[in-house]
Amino acid sequence: MPGFVEIVSQLTNGVIYGLILALVAVGFSLVLGVMGIINFAHGLLFALGAYLAYSLQFHVGYFGALVIAPLIVGMIGILMEFVFIRRLYGRDPLFVLVLTFGVAMAGEEIIQLIWGKLARSVDAPAFADSFIDFGFIIYSEYRLFMAAAAALIIGATWYLLAKSPLGSIIRAGTHDPEMVSILGMNLPLIRTGVFGFTALLGGAAGVVAAPLWSVRPTMGLDALLPAFLIVVIGGMGSFWGSVLGGLLVGVANAISVMFFPRFADLTMYVLAAVVLLYWPRGLLGKKSVLE
């Protein structure tokens, strides 16, 4: 039986893991909502963020990487949309699945060519590479920083979507992109921008996660599968659904690591199955673009 300290520590780890997954899921869900596209390459963007953080840390330090890597990933996203994705709007969703899956696979190979097959490590920034003693528990400073950074990015994204004029265009586009176009807004440009923005979010998640996550070529897939399930659990198109789903998966994972470590990898699938039995559209989901 795990002790009190272990339980608190594992649950906190779970929440932080969940916040990172939520950050990945929010971007994934936004592309699904605005463009009706299941972007299997979203995990690749997460991985690229982490790998760029690895390479950039030697030149500009961790904080430099935290700013520059997401911007580069954002630009890669814009390029990806411009070259591949935009050809497939309005086509059979299967085309996009195959295309983004192919891009994800090719991207993983490219990562191996550039950075090799072995895992790389990114150092936590100096100010947060130690531990804090809370009296009853000693906890990693970097994990707390990670939680704060993820929560901050999620909060800023929500503010942008809910309160800014740009956000109302994106929300309108989620509901009826054609009408957005009829009102005179450049729909292709909006789509490219949204895709680039979600790439930036994915890249940022990758940088924040890098010091604790094992930075290896398959890490994109390691984040994508949970993110996909989180969107299903939280409900397609619901921002807070993705956040809630992320936290649930993170905490459920932490609990199963403590009590049933052999089944830990199964937890999120069981969770998704149970949620779908009772809430077929996910916990906070409304009628989705895929219906």
């Binding site: 109302s168 929300r171 509901h175 009408m179 009829i182 005179g184």
Partner: peptide
């Protein structure tokens, strides 16, 4: 021309289903 471009040159269109954005 693209619909947004047609709107920009001065054509306004009010579709029959009204197409109000419900979450705005």
């Amino acid at each position: 021309r693209q619909p947004f471009d047609i709107a920009k040159v001065g054509v306004g269109f009010v579709p029959d289903s009204r197409r109000i954005f419900p979450t705005l």
